[in-house]
Amino acid sequence: MSASITLATTRRILNQLRHDPRTVVMLVLVPTLLMVLLRFVFNSAVVFSHVAPALLGVFPFVIMFLIASITTLRERTTGTLERLMTMPLGKFDLLAGYALAFGLVAVVQVLVAAAVSLWWLGLTVQGSVWSLLLITALDALLGMALGLFVSAFATTEFQAIQFMPVFVLPQALLCGLFQPRSEMGWLLNWLSDVMPLSYAVEALQQVTGGAEWTATLTRNLLVVLGCALLALALGAATLRRRTP
C-alpha cells in the first residue's frame, strides 16, 4: 500500500469528474430532487419521515454502484488498467483511491439530500444526524465496492448497466422498504437476511426511530462495513496483472 499513490488516484478521479460538470450536477442534485418528489407524492410529513431515511441510504448505494461499475469497466476497456498494472501500483492503492474519491462524492450527495429533507421536507431524526451520515456513507461505499466487483464480469457498458437491476433492485425490494421483512415468507425473509442493504436500511430506521445507540445498530453497521470490505477484496481479486 502506498498513501501517495492512493491519494494521487483519488485526485485523478476527482479531476476526471471536474471535467464532466453535468455528471457532478446530477450526482449532487438527483437524490435531493427524488426526495422532494417523494415528499409530495406522500403529501404528508409523517409518512415521508417513515420512508425517507431508508431512501437516503438506497440512493447513494444505487448511484455509486452504477458510477463505479462504469468507470472501472472503462478503465479496463481503454487499456489504462493494463498500463497501471505494469507500474508500481498495488491493487489496493487503486481500489482505495476509488473508494476515497467516490466516498467523498457520496458524502456530499447525502449531505445535500439530508439537509433538504431535514430542514425543508419535515424529516425528523430521533438519533444523531452524524450517525445517519455515517450509515449513508457506508451504504455508498458498499454500492461502490459491489459495482467495482461486478464490473469485472461485464465486457460492455450495456452489460454493466444491466447488472444494476440484477444486483441492486432485488436488494431494494427485499430490504424492508416496501414491506417489513418480518412479514415476508421464509424464503424471502432468508434472502433479505443475506443481503447487505437490509442491514443498512434497518440501521437507518433505528437511527431515525430512537435516540440511543444500540448493540443491534453496531451489528448492522459492522455487517454493512464487512460486506463492503469483502466486495472490495473480491474486486481486488478480479484485477489481474497478467491476462490471456
Partner: peptide, 29 residues
Amino acid sequence: RNRIGYATQNPAVYADLTITESLRYFASV
C-alpha cells in the same frame, strides 16, 4: 515496474483529463 515504459497500440490515457493531468497522475504512480 518503474524500469520499463510501455505504450500500447490503442492510446491508454484518460480521455477526460488534460495531457498534463493525465501525465501527472502516471508520474506520481
